[in-house]
Structure formats: structure tokens, C-alpha cells
Write a protein that binds this DNA or RNA. Structure first.
Length: 886
RNA sequence: GGGCGGCUAGCUCAGCUGGUCAGAGCGCCUGGUUUACACCCAGGAGGCCGGGGGUUCGAACCCCUCGCCGCCCACCA
């Protein structure tokens, strides 16, 4: 006997171990099976499972379990990302907390060693947590972005792109994170709006005493690096000054006044100081005018030796204050205003102001790589789901900037570039190859030094769909599983990750990395706030699993996955889906108590009783709906269809109405038992991708009676009931019965009495009166039910037993059909059809329309007209007949 | 500045191409507990579908406009 409720705590670990041990997670090795593959968005190895992971991985697991059951060789490839900055910072922090030497004292090699130690000890957290969620990843193929195979892929890609001229070294402005002292990409910068100040200063015109040009700036400290002042060429105020020079205050350097469109007469004073080394716009102006770029900052954003001595070593913000004071003292201060402006911050901490900084970095020519990636989506080789995200993708790809891929960190893939004594660059996959290249270049052996930098984390994750499958080796996995089928990810990494995978995948594999990108939403708390540790509103999915079970959490994730952007998570909702699980559990318990056991060789096609034919058809509909939904990656629709079928159809109606059948005619009872067991079996299959644990458990328990099972549920075949299971007559009749019970007051009252006191519902032959009513009004009823073209035959149909004499819910037809309401409805519909006919006829009568509209549109309208006319004729007749019903 | 979402019952949201579309779950109210399930059952109250205009025989759904709310992108001194 089943327990009263499902106990996830004891069942989940047991079943997961059983699945894993059985090898069910690995794709089956059947060459005839069509492959299906998903690569996991690799979570940071430092991370732990948050609710977003729960959503994202639930969706992947649903898809992969679905495809596995459909007989495909389904692979879900797991792994983790080394997460350069995050991991390095974390280990550094731990070193500091435990009073150890800092990173720099430790030295590069020893530090990296420490990070690996940490990874070995604690890096498995998130992977263990994924198991608790039920993720059916093939752990035998687990990868890590820094493992040997992936590192080889990274080196090969870097070297190849370099040799193709798509990676290059360049000195230009980058986003500099002064605290970590590394470059970061545009995407790692977040612009926040703040109220700052805009100062106005007088720059004295050279050779014209007492004449000034007033410039406006929000960053006075960078003035020490000014190399020009720009005004708009058409700005009358300054026309005569163009070509003259100003004496840069505090520095004494002479700098030119130039005319450039960049200067906006409306902004500030119309005259803008140009500091090419510290501002992206100014850098461009500088390039146009051949200006020198003078860097006045050190890597940790203090003033350097290019600044006048009194400012050297000062922090940028301290220097700012001092410079304003000094200019004021010189009488060059004109004024200051509060100013709303955006300031670039470090995307992670949101505390450190990012500095445009002039350094040598490695760049990827993203513009070139983006072109085929844009085309691939345009041509539908990769589709986004929902499609609206394609626009986001296009917008970014079409305006893509060079990608800075070098990072001044230690944890990551070291750049495979070596420098000769004279600075010549040798980019090769190994040091040996670099030495050989150097020998060829110099004509003798030279000592080389390797580039100190590592690559952006996203460089290696950009290769993930093929590097994890074994590339650059031509492996069988690569052949079978690339391109992958689905990528499931959240929209916040479309740029970071999806776009890079598209570019690199197409470039190196010649094919898109995935056929479909399924974008899932972001989860917020119940107030709609983004979850964050600092706000303390983080919901730990593991707590939820402890409390409600993994299946409940998974069902919740699936059911809410339809929301495009934001999901607000509430415990009530999870509780509701936990209750749903309990409901199913108890339905199974009911089946067990009533000996609804699977029957060897049972064929649903042969059932005769109307209710069994009906539930068979309902199961068919549900099965079709769930299959279609999962094919479309619409997990919410699949979950909804299953919820409604299990609760509102199977439990509320089938099981309730089965009760009298089970104690009645033995033949009907036996058929109902077998049918019920069969339906439950199909439910377990259909529900398994979303609720794997409970369904597998029930699969096991229901194996105790009846024929033995061929396999665990995880590898059981997906239901594919034939269309012939549909039975329109049974459906029509059951609709009547259900309507009767729902609408009939007296019946409702009967059903309300306690089950023990409830008289058994007797199934007998229909009385003469009921038979006559049904037969006479069959046509009208058919119309009322909108069941067109059905063989509704009161006499032959199974409806008869349900309107049997003595049955507690047997009612004359006229009692449960509100004739007046039906007449009104039909009348309304006839009117609608009439107007449709009218409009279409008018349209077709218009010679202009017939002459100019496309042929198929005209044809469509003709069909519509005749269809409407026929329908109207039918309804008119029905109305007429209805008038005769009493 | 550009772009994208959202605004439907007290709450969270469904409503897929305009015609049973005014719904679900939770919450609330009423009634029900001796064998499937109180993590339940039966019933009920509650919404000018953000405002205004338009198209249409018909609009939560299409168009225009306004108003909030949220997100993404952007180099404005």
C-alpha cells in the first residue's frame, strides 16, 4: 500500500542514484537513434545553485528527458566555468581572511596552485546541487573550461584567429578596473546615473593676455592630460580662436584650439577640453587631429609622472578636489553646476569607477566574425524562442565593437603569445612552437617571455558547444551532437555568451552551434525585486527542495517559464504544485486500493463503456497537447495541460464516476480498472519530464501488480496514442453527463452527501422516456454542444446508461439544457454569421477588390462566404428544431 | 537619446491568428472530515481587461494617443 503522502526526502536521492548507476543519463549508443543535445550554460565553479539556475536547468532537464523518452540519443552535457575574475577574487579574499600572503607575494605559480586546490576541495558544490534538482546530465562527459582538452581548444582558436588577422594586439583605450588593475570588456561596465558636478574653467589664450576660453568638464583631474580644446566649426563665438593656442593651466603646456563636430555648441560652454588618453570620445577626436595622448594615471588610478609633481601619487578623486582649488586660487574658476550624468562602474561590484585607460591589449575583430553570425539568424539556421529576442541579438551584433579579450589576471587561459628580445610577437599553440618560430625569425635561438595576461572567461565559454565535444579532435561526439539542438539560457547573457558562441562556432565549425535558443526569464522576489545577496531576498532553491520536494519546485519552474521577462516567485505557488503532486499520488493510491492494475495485453482501443472511451480520448488530447508544447519548448503549456488533465479530468470526473462502475457490472468494472490503470500509466510518462521523482516512484510501485516493467520510467517510451482513440460520440455524451451533474441542483445535492451514505449509481438500461427524449432531440443537442458532424445517437450510444432510471444523476434532457439560453446563443451566432456573410459578399462584389487582391485572398473570401452560408443554414435549421423541443 | 516588455478579480498570472474570453491558482466567505486526497471536496463573492480616441457587425486582443512601472543599449563635456 502506498503511503499517505509522497516523501521526497527519502525517494529523491535513492532514485537519482539508481538513474545514474543505470547509465540512463548517457545518450544511448544506437546509431539508428536521432541525436539530441544540449550543452549546459556552465555555471561558475565558485557558485552555488540559485533560483535562476533552478529555472534554467529545470527547463533543460524537461527537454532532455522528453527527447530521451522519445527514443532519441539524448545528451545533456554538463560542466563548469572557471570564471576568471570571480574565482580569483574569491581565493584572494580567502587568503586575506586566513592571514596568508597576498597574491603578489605568493607569486603567480603558487597562487594559481592555490586556486586549483580550492577548486578540488569546493568546486563541486553546484554540480552536487544540480543533482538534487534531478538534472539528468551525463556526468561522464562533465567538462571544465580550464581542463586540458578545453585549454587546447582555446589555444588553437587563439592562434588560428591571430594568424587569420582576426586577433591583434593594439594600444587603445580600454575599460580599466583600477582596483583589480585589469582591462574589462564593454559588457562588464555598467553606466549608472548620478548627480555629479560640471565645472567651468578659464584656459588663457596664448599671446592674448586676459583673454580666455571657458571649458566645461565633469572630470577636472584629467585636464592635466589635455592636448587640445575643441569648438564646433560653425560656432560663431569661437570662430576667431580656432587655430590659436591656449596655455594649459597648472601644466603650462601649449595646446591648440581645434574645430571639430564633436564639440556641441549646446553643451556646457560649447568649448570642450580634449584628453585623448582618458576619454573615449576625446580619443577619437585626438586620432582625427593627430593629437598626442598623454596618460596621467597609474594603473591604480593615481596621478603619474606625467602630472606636475605636486599631484603625483594622489588618488584621482583627491586630485580632482585639489585641482579645482588650485584653479580657483589662480582665478581661473568660472563656476560649477550640479549635473545629471552617467558614470561607468564595475558591473560586478557597482562600486569601482571604471577608467578609460590607454594600454596594450589583445583584441578580437568581432565585426568580421559577427557577419556570418548575423546571417545565420536571418536565415533561420538558429532561431530564438521567443523570437522577439532576435532583435536584441541583431541590434548588438550589427553595432559590435572590437572585443578586448586580455585580462591582467592570473586565473585563466594564459595567452599563447611570446615576445622576443626586440618585442617581436610569436603566437603559437606551444612554447616549443614559439621557440621554433623565433629561431626561424632570428636565425638563432632566443629566449622568449610569454605574455603575462590571461583570456577573458567568455573566450573559452564561447567555444563551449564544440570544445566540450572534443574539438579540435574529430570525435564521434562532435560528429553526432554538433550542432547542438537547443540552448537554454537567460536573456542577460545573450551578448556575453550566445553571441560569442555564434561567432566562434560558425567560424571554426562552419555550422551554427545550436539550432534553437530558448530564452528564459529572470526570477525576482515576490515584490518584483531582483534577488541579490545584499538585499537579502535570495530564495535558496535547495531550501525549497527541502521543504516541498524537487518535483514541486520543478513543476513551478516549468509552469512559470512562459513569462518572457520577469517571474515573481511565491511560496504559495510552489505549495500549490506540491499539492498537485499529492493529488496525483492519491489518485494512484485510489487506483491501488481499487485494484486498478495494469493488465497484460490490454488494448485501450477495445474498451466499450462510454466513460472509458471518453477518458481514453481525453488522454489522447492531453498527450497531443503536451507533446506539441514540449516540442515548442513551451514547458508552461505542457505543465498547464497536465495539471488540468490530472486534476480536473482524471481525478474530478473519471475517478469519481468510476466509483459506481467499480462496484457494478463485473465486466464494466474490470474494463474500467484496466483503463484507469492504463491512463495512470500514461500520466506518469507524460509527467515524468517535469516531475521525474514522483512519477518514477509511482512507476516502481505500480510495477508490483500486473505484468513486469521493461525499464525504468526515465527510459520508458513516450506515449503516442493513435488518433483512433478519439471518440466523438463518447465525448459528446460525457459532456452531457458532466453538464448534467454540474448544472443539476438535485444531482449536486446527491453528490454532496458523504460517500458512505451515497447511494450507488446504478447502471441499467434507459427508461423509455429518456430514450425517446434523447432520440428526438439528438440533432438539437448536437448543435447545442457544437459537436459538428458527430454520430450522436441516443439509442446506440453509451449515454443511455447514464440517463438510466434510478441513477441519482439521471435527468431528462430538457432539465439540464437551458433551452432559452441555447436559443439566445444560437441566435447570436446566426446574427454573427449573417454579418460575416454580408461583409464578405460585399467585398466580393467590389470589382476593385476582385481585380487587385491576390488570387488566393479572393479565393479565401469565396470559401469563407460559402462556409459561412452553409454554417448559417445549419444553425437556422438547428434553431428551428430547437423551437420544437419541449 | 534609441529599443523592448508590462499594466486583466485582493495577490500572482493565463487568455496563442479579433467572435463561449471575462478565466486559473492563491487569498476571502459558506457548507462538508468515519477508507484516494483537508496538501481535500462542493459552492460563493469579487474585474467599465491602465485612461481616451479610432477601425469593425463585433476589441482584453488591431491602430493612434496619453499615463504610470520595469528592463536593455548609448560616447554626451
Amino acid at each position: 500500500m502506498l503511503e499517505k503522502t509522497f516523501n521526497p526526502k527519502s525517494v529523491e536521492p535513492r532514485l537519482y542514484a539508481k538513474w545514474e548507476a543505470s547509465g540512463a543519463f548517457a545518450p544511448k549508443d544506437d546509431p539508428g537513434a536521432q541525436p539530441y543535445s544540449i550543452v549546459i550554460p556552465p555555471p561558475n565553479v565558485t557558485g552555488s545553485l540559485h533560483i535562476g539556475h533552478a529555472l534554467n536547468n529545470t527547463l533543460q532537464d524537461v527537454l532532455v528527458r522528453f527527447q530521451r523518452m522519445r527514443g532519441r540519443a539524448a545528451l545533456w552535457l554538463p560542466g563548469t566555468d572557471h570564471a576568471g575574475i570571480a574565482t580569483q577574487m574569491m581565493v584572494e579574499r580567502q587568503l586575506a581572511e586566513s592571514g596568508n600572503m597576498g597574491r603578489r607575494d605568493l607569486g603567480r605559480e603558487a597562487f594559481v596552485e592555490r586556486v586549483w586546490e580550492w577548486k578540488a576541495k569546493s568546486g563541486g558544490t553546484i554540480v552536487r546541487q544540480l543533482r538534487r534538482l534531478g538534472a539528468s546530465c551525463d556526468w561522464s562527459r562533465e567538462r571544465f573550461t580550464l581542463d586540458e582538452g578545453l585549454s587546447a581548444a582555446v589555444r588553437k582558436v587563439f592562434v588560428t584567429l591571430y594568424k587569420q588577422g582576426l586577433i591583434y594586439r593594439d594600444k587603445r583605450l580600454v575599460n580599466w578596473q583600477p582596483e583589480l588593475q585589469t582591462a574589462v570588456s564593454d559588457l562588464e561596465v555598467v553606466n549608472l546615473e548620478v548627480t555629479g558636478q560640471m565645472w567651468r574653467f578659464r584656459y588663457p589664450i596664448s599671446g592674448e593676455p586676459d583673454r580666455f576660453i571657458v571649458v566645461a568638464t565633469t572630470r577636472p583631474e584629467t585636464m592635466l592630460g589635455d592636448t587640445a580644446v575643441a569648438v564646433h566649426p560653425a560656432d560663431e563665438r569661437y570662430k576667431d580662436l580656432v587655430g590659436k593656442q591656449v596655455r594649459l593651466p597648472l601644466v603650462g603646456r601649449l595646446i591648440p584650439i581645434i574645430a571639430d563636430d564633436y564639440a556641441d555648441p549646446e553643451k556646457g560652454t560649447g568649448a570642450v577640453k580634449i584628453t585623448p588618453a582618458h576619454d573615449f570620445n576625446d580619443f577619437r577626436v585626438g586620432q582625427r587631429h593627430g593629437l598626442e595622448a598623454i596618460n596621467v594615471f597609474t594603473p591604480d588610478a593615481r596621478l603619474n609622472e606625467n602630472a606636475p609633481e605636486k599631484y603625483r601619487g594622489l588618488d584621482r578623486f583627491v586630485a580632482r578636489k585639489k585641482i579645482v582649488e588650485d584653479l580657483e586660487a589662480l582665478g581661473l574658476f568660472e563656476g560649477v553646476d550640479a549635473n545629471r550624468m552617467t558614470v561607468p562602474y564595475d558591473e560586478k561590484s557597482k562600486l569601482v569607477v571604471i577608467e578609460p585607460y590607454l594600454t596594450d591589449q589583445w583584441w578580437v575583430d568581432a565585426k568580421t566574425l559577427a557577419q556570418p553570425a548575423i546571417r545565420a539568424v536571418e536565415e533561420g539556421k538558429t532561431v530564438f524562442e521567443p523570437k522577439s529576442w532576435e532583435r536584441t541579438y541583431f541590434d548588438w551584433m550589427r553595432n559590435i565593437e572590437p572585443w578586448c579579450v586580455s585580462r591582467q589576471l592570473w586565473w585563466g587561459h594564459r595567452i599563447p603569445a611570446w615576445y622576443g628580445p626586440d618585442g617581436a610577437i610569436f603566437v603559437e599553440e606551444t612554447e616549443a612552437a614559439a621557440l621554433a618560430a623565433a629561431r626561424a625569425h632570428y636565425g638563432r635561438s632566443e629566449t622568449l617571455t610569454q605574455d603575462e595576461d590571461v583570456l577573458d572567461t567568455w573566450f573559452s565559454s564561447g567555444l563551449w558547444p564544440f570544445s566540450t565535444l572534443g574539438w579540435p579532435e574529430q570525435t564521434r561526439d562532435l560528429e553526432r551532437f554538433y550542432p547542438t539542438w537547443d540552448l537554454v539560457t537567460s536573456f542577460d547573457i545573450i551578448f556575453f555568451w550566445v553571441a560569442r558562441m555564434m561567432m566562434l562556432g560558425i567560424h571554426f565549425m562552419g555550422e551554427v552551434p545550436f539550432r534553437r535558443v530558448v530564452i528564459n526569464a529572470l526570477i525576482r522576489d515576490e515584490q518584483g525585486q531582483k534577488m541579490s545577496k545584499t538585499k537579502g531576498n535570495v530564495v535558496d532553491p535547495l531550501d525549497l527542495i527541502d521543504e516541498y520536494g524537487a518535483d514541486a519546485l520543478r513543476f513551478t519552474m516549468a509552469a512559470m517559464s512562459g513569462q518572457a521577462r520577469d517571474i515573481r516567485l511565491s511560496r504559495e505557488r510552489i505549495e500549490g504544485y506540491r499539492n498537485f503532486g499529492t493529488k496525483l499520488w492519491n489518485a494512484a493510491r485510489f487506483c491501488q486500493m481499487n485494484s486498478c492494475e495494469r493488465v497484460e495485453g490490454f488494448d485501450p482501443a477495445t474498451v466499450r463503456h462510454v466513460q472509458n472511451r471518453w477518458i481514453r480520448g481525453e488522454l489522447l488530447k492531453t498527450s497531443r497537447a503536451v507533446t506539441a508544447a514540449l516540442e515548442a519548448a513551451a514547458c508552461d503549456e505542457a505543465a498547464g495541460a497536465l495539471f488540468r488533465f490530472v486534476w480536473n479530468v482524471f481525478c474530478d470526473w473519471h475517478l469519481e464516476l468510476a466509483k459506481p462502475l467499480l462496484v457494478g457490472d463485473p465486466a464494466v468494472a474490470a474494463e474500467t480498472r484496466a483503463t484507469t490503470a492504463w491512463v495512470l500509466d500514461q500520466i506518469l510518462r507524460l509527467l515524468h519530464p517535469i516531475m521525474p521523482f514522483m512519477t518514477e516512484e509511482l512507476w516502481e510501485k505500480t510495477a508490483e501488480a500486473g505484468p513486469p516493467r521493461d525499464s525504468m520510467l526515465i527510459t520508458a517510451p513516450w506515449p503516442d496514442p493513435p488518433d483512433s482513440y478519439a471518440d466523438a460520440a463518447a465525448e459528446a455524451e460525457m459532456t452531457l453527463v458532466i453538464a448534467a451533474i454540474r448544472e443539476g441542483r438535485s444531482v449536486r445535492a446527491e453528490l454532496n452527501v458523504p460517500p458512505s451514505a451515497r447511494p450507488p449509481l446504478i447502471v441499467t438500461e434507459a427508461g423509455e422516456r429518456q430514450r425517446r427524449i434523447l432520440t428526438q432531440n439528438a440533432e438539437a443537442i448536437r448543435q447545442m454542444l457544437r459537436v459538428e458532424g458527430l454520430r450522436f445517437d441516443g439509442e446506440a450510444s453509451g449515454a443511455v446508461p447514464y440517463v438510466a432510471e434510478g441513477a441519482s444523476f439521471a435527468l431528462p434532457v430538457a432539465d439540464f439544457i437551458d433551452l432559452a439560453a441555447e436559443r439566445a446563443r444560437l441566435t447570436k451566432e446566426v446574427a454573427a454569421l449573417a454579418s460575416d456573410i454580408d461583409r464578405t459578399a460585399k467585398k466580393l462584389a467590389n470589382p476593385d477588390f476582385v481585380a487587385r487582391a491576390p488570387e488566393e485572398v479572393v479565393e479565401e473570401n469565396r470559401e469563407r462566404l460559402s462556409g459561412a452560408q452553409e454554417a448559417k443554414a445549419r444553425l437556422d435549421a438547428a434553431l428551428e428544431r430547437l423551437g420544437a423541443v419541449s
